[in-house]
Design a binder for these strands. Structure first.
Lengths: 355, 355
DNA sequence: CTGTTAGCGCCTTCAG
DNA sequence: CTGAAGGCGCTAACAG
């Protein structure tokens, strides 16, 4: 029952040498067909299980066939789906995943990374906990283990990152509104001194110009990227001369606030005023009915991240310095059923990926 | 960069022997304090990482410190939360989890289990894919690896199981309705020839008797455990002489149907007729507003499963034959925000656990 | 308290 | 096509 059966056991039972067994194990063509069959039979009979630990130990360069995945909040179904996407491609490539939940704690994150390292992961995909420092990833990259960061960036860390393409997303969202017939579209919320703001604003402007729509500076109303900020922004927006008929909101929190403000003013969001916002996922656990958002396709992002990592792993040398940016973005209308509801996607696109 | 530093490296650098280093590594008290400090320093300086694979190989009985987790649908946030619960306790015990998603495919499940076995997991927690056979788990238990099945049972497999306590859950639900003032409460939906039906019906009856409420057989209306079945059941129910004022539904699908039927008849669920149903999780991706359900606390169940497994692991010999039944059940009212919304739990209880 | 000696299970030469 | 060595990184015994 407990007796572990090894290659020598099966070699003995099959009347061959260990090497022969080893060869059939890895499907080498250098072994006689009948011998192979016999060995295979014995393997099955004795219930032999390959010991990857030992194999891995022997092979100088650690190809452990295990990749680590750490997410900051598995409770958020975005990350659960991300993990599923990773799992799919990783499994297909013959790897298995160590999945850990940092629960937004850098301390815990450090622990799990250390643990994973001891287990000899051959790569890591991480959605960093808030406050993650480049130093936290340092030892990993120093030892040549490929790392790809998703969703959030780790400034200073020389690792590949997979982030949403804010520019393309904003552009898509505005094009969506234009397609709905809107001519004057505002950009509401967010602090102008942040990178994301600039990126999203850029995409917004680009779409407006391309469609020949209004582009006045008064259409851009900055505010805190919060619900309250949304209320404030829509308040100023509705007082504009020649009032806009729709708005792209900096994020979902702002969009919520905008909806609040519209209702307070007797306007129904969606019917009387178009509202669309970036679904920044982290904060929003519940969707608001009738709100259209620009979201990342989590599974798609997971698959992409895994592909990227696997490529780096097989490339051998970690050329992990390139910071790639972008992901699958979808414009979707939530149906009031929460994130896990069927997404009645209005439009779906895969945007250019700059690697 | 690539050069892997080993115990001998650090032994050499510290001017001691490998064994001493090894002792320091496992915090043995058999080593001089100054030597220990020196070794520790060198370890840090050279960036040494413990190789669990090698250690594990050496130690006769494999204590790999890794436990496998396979769920049938990680996309369902119930299972994501389950994984989180497992992760918590498992991490606290110094283990790491291999998490795989079988996506309801027994084929894939078999693959990942095989893979996990090769990696030397010291235990497995599995939420079996539909159609899982006892044979799928056979090799695992045969080699003495503890297995605990959650959510679904694997008939015939001699493994511990953690299932919801249908009896207690039904009883709690009915008590909840009685607490709301209902006197005539129906039991709607489900096929009477199933085990769960019997268990839930038992709890329902027990609560009625205990409260001295009506217990007529006409109050029990079987039907398919589906939305359509719910419509049918409520249709017959409302035609009863002395109409009930509330119902416990076999599952959430039935409950949905019951709500449909009520509305069609001009009755508002919750206000005109109390509806409560078992949240069987698997099918329900979206919650219906104002529906009260009997649910399992997923994280709690995960923690519990992990504890059970860890206990069996440390116990050494797999006494995994006991089939334990039950889990944390909560009666909660959904707020139309999906499962991941804040649960405004009406009542929460931990029911007796028979191990 | 520390060093020495054997392997754990597997895989790669290197010869038959 | 197959068998015989050697060693991966680590730890369990024993000696010092």
């Amino acid at each position: 029952m407990g007796e572990r059966v090894t290659v020598v056991d099966i070699a003995h039972a099959a009347g061959v040498s260990k090497s022969t067994v080893s060869l059939v194990l890895q499907g080498s063509p250098l072994v006689n067909e009948v011998t192979r069959a016999k060995v295979a039979a014995v393997i099955r009979d004795l219930g032999y299980v390959y010991n990857r630990g030992a194999a891995n130990l022997r092979q100088a360069n650690a190809k452990s066939k295990i990749i680590g995945v750490v997410v900051n909040d598995l409770t958020n179904s975005f990350f659960a789906e991300l993990a599923v996407g990773i799992d799919m491609t990783v499994q297909a490539a013959g790897y298995v995943q160590f999945l850990a939940n940092s629960a937004e704690s850098v301390e815990r994150q450090r622990e799990v990374i250390a643990s994973m390292r001891e287990h000899g992961i051959s790569g890591l995909i991480i959605s960093p906990a808030r406050g993650t420092d480049a130093a936290d990833l340092k030892p990993l990259v120093a030892s040549g283990i490929p790392v790809v960061a998703v969703v959030r960036n780790v400034p200073g860390a020389k690792v590949s990152s997979l982030l949403s393409d804010n520019h393309a997303g904003a552009r898509a969202a505005v094009e969506h509104l234009i397609g709905l017939g809107h001519k004057r579209i505002a950009f509401l919320g967010g602090f102008p001194d942040t990178t994301v703001f600039g990126e999203r604003l850029g995409g917004y402007r680009e779409a407006l110009v391309a469609a020949g729509a209004d582009t006045g500076d008064d259409l851009v109303i900055a505010s805190a990227p919060s619900r309250a900020g949304g209320v404030a922004a829509i308040g100023r927006c509705t007082q504009l001369a020649n009032r806009p008929t729709a708005a792209l909101c900096f994020n979902d929190a702002v969009a919520f606030g905008v909806c609040d403000g519209l209702r307070a003013a007797g306007l129904e969001p969606g019917r009387d005023f178009g509202v669309i916002g970036f679904d920044d996922v982290i904060e929003a656990k519940t969707a608001v009915p009738a709100l259209t958002t620009v979201s990342i396709d989590p599974q798609g992002m997971g698959r992409r991240a895994a592909q990227l990592l696997l490529k780096q792993i097989s490339a051998g040398k970690a050329e992990a310095e390139a910071v790639v940016s972008s992901a699958h973005l979808v414009v979707r209308r939530s149906c009031g059923a929460g994130r896990s509801g069927a997404d009645d996607t209005a439009m779906q696109g895969r945007f250019a990926i700059a690697e």
